[in-house]
Write a protein that binds this DNA or RNA. Structure first.
Lengths: 341, 341
DNA sequence: CTGAAAGCGCTAACAA
DNA sequence: TTGTTAGCGCTTTCAG
């Protein structure tokens, strides 16, 4: 079946091109009867409007872009579901881009988004991202966008985040409360605002508890490949007087901590208590079950997309800008932070 | 910065539209000097070709579609990474669609793909998909597509799958070998070929071992929501003479089995041995660590995409069709199937 | 090496 | 209610 276009379909039903066009899009200008004729013929001959011709003409792509640092993290899988849940409702298409935590790629992707390919973009920034030039470009092109989860701080736009400082604070409090005297915070980047806020909250609680954060390293940066991180954590665990509590600022650190503990014969929670920022479904069935600070990943994706659409649909784009929505995470206590008396 | 088009750029550099067009695309017809002039001006004025105008003209979208049943399963996250790894190389864009395991949605999505929106599609079918009409439509439109992981059987096209029968066989053998006398296979759909092949392999091994598969249920279909599946498994475990070995045909069943065992105070591997088709990274740190049959998810995505591109790039699309690539999975033994003596 | 012009398939004024 | 027509922004013959 050869692809048929509107012109040919018009000829087949003996109507003008514009009548067919309107009929296809169920315009009120067209009589029910002609609509039926057209729709039937369309069905019969397998006609479907060419989306790109239509996009070109209408200057609307019915497509949004989602830029993610990675997709292995369970958080982003859940967020994608949230995003799709509203995109489907709006009959929008979703382009997924991966920055692989590299600014250069991120810039590249955003350049693509500036060319009119998409009506809006959802972005969670890479951990390298240190300046906002490319975000300004998006803004200049008047393309609506919203940060979700990982925002670029001090940038005036819509964002959907979680209560990171508070959760950082809570994580430290929780560890202290369960008997830790030397808790540390494992970050993945000194420039990633989301990690920094969590770290700041952590430090605040530690300081409040009278622990001298100057004397000992409390914020530790784990960078590189999974293997390098694994080695780094193992080294930490082999130090004399090593930490007795760890906060994993992102999911993948938690797994490395568990692995490193197995290999170093360190018992959780007896020798080390662990708490992780994570949406891992398997947290309850880990050995031991993992205490998590669980972000509302699906809802973050969903809310961000809803906001994006209000911006896309608004005649005055700036009117709805600069909303910051904070969806709270929950601390779910499990055995990895069990108090040992 | 207002969006500038090729016409305006041409005016700005005092060249014709066609010259600019060729310069932008680095045509050999254009002198180095003019190219520089044009490229500089493009950079300066922030010109980027409108992708949809270009698609319309060239009848190429530089976009592929990926249709997934869901994205929560870790397998598909990894596969997406594999897909992106080659799409990025080719400078292609990736549209992700979710069928949510519903044929109706799947058909809908494929209808979209037929309209010329994409140059090719990768698809892993929903567990409801029972006929191939919509795939024929794709074929008629001459849109290259390849099945990955979950194929539609007896459909003549390119597919990248894993050795499901063999692994099903292996899973049963392994359980029997570790001392199970009543192993069962948990499927999610009686119509999903991938599950059926695994189940067939399982049954083959069981029969071979002289266990009468007629007497007791060995293939059990778990359908519905996570909660419903959880309840169903719990019921299974409460039966008199319940199974002493379970194969989870997909990842999410494994989690429900673990949860159900916790709630029912059934010990793994003492009372029940568990093996799962899964790419779960946390398998080694579960309680107990989970024996898995691990699919090469990234490579399946990667290979499927590579094949798709050979089809897209081939002048004679049919020439490269009908390749079936089988990438083997590995059984990784862990404590959930530990032999108890 | 550069330019003029036709047209990809569709939508939206405007006319009838 | 239907039809005519002028583009959307780009690529690509074909002429110069």
């Amino acid at each position: 079946m050869k692809k048929i276009n509107i012109k040919e379909l018009a000829k087949l039903v003996n109507l003008s091109i514009s009548t067919v066009s309107k009929a296809i899009r169920d315009s009120h200008e067209i009589s029910e009867q002609t609509k039926n004729t057209v729709l039937e013929a369309a069905e019969k001959f397998g006609y479907a409007p060419n989306p790109y011709a239509s996009s070109l003409r209408k200057k609307k792509s019915k497509t949004i872009a989602v830029i993610l640092p990675e997709v292995a993290d369970n958080f982003f899988s859940l967020a994608i579901n949230g995003i799709h849940s509203v995109a489907e409702l709006k009959n929008y298409h979703v382009l997924i881009y991966l920055s692989h935590e590299k600014v250069e790629l991120e810039k590249n992707i955003i350049a693509h988004c500036c060319s009119g390919r998409v009506d809006g973009v959802l972005i969670s920034i890479s951990d390298e991202t240190a300046n906002a030039d490319h975000f300004h470009k998006l803004q200049n092109e008047n393309i609506p966008f919203v940060f979700f989860d990982r925002e670029f701080e001090n940038f005036n736009t819509t964002k959907v985040i979680t209560n990171d400082f508070e959760c950082g604070y809570l994580s430290a409090k929780h560890l202290l409360d369960r008997g830790c005297s030397h808790p540390v915070f494992l970050s993945i980047s000194p420039s990633l605002p989301i990690c920094n806020k969590r770290a700041e909250g952590f430090t605040a609680a530690i300081t409040e508890a009278g622990i001298d954060t100057g004397k000992q390293d409390t914020i530790i940066y784990c960078t590189g490949s999974q293997e390098e991180i694994f080695d780094q954590i193992k080294k930490l665990l082999h130090k004399k007087n090593h930490a007795d509590g760890m906060v994993a600022s992102v999911e993948r650190l938690a797994m490395q901590i568990y692995m490193a503990c197995v290999e170093s014969a360190i018992r959780i929670p007896e020798d080390l208590k662990v708490i992780a920022f994570s949406t891992l479904e398997t947290a309850p069935i880990l050995n031991p079950s993992l205490t998590t600070i669980t972000q509302p990943a699906f809802d973050i994706g969903k809310t961000a997309t809803e906001l994006l659409f209000t911006m896309i649909e608004a005649s005055n784009k700036t009117a709805v800008k600069n909303a910051t929505v904070v969806l709270p995470s929950r601390l779910i206590e499990r055995n990895s932070t069990l108090r040992i008396d």
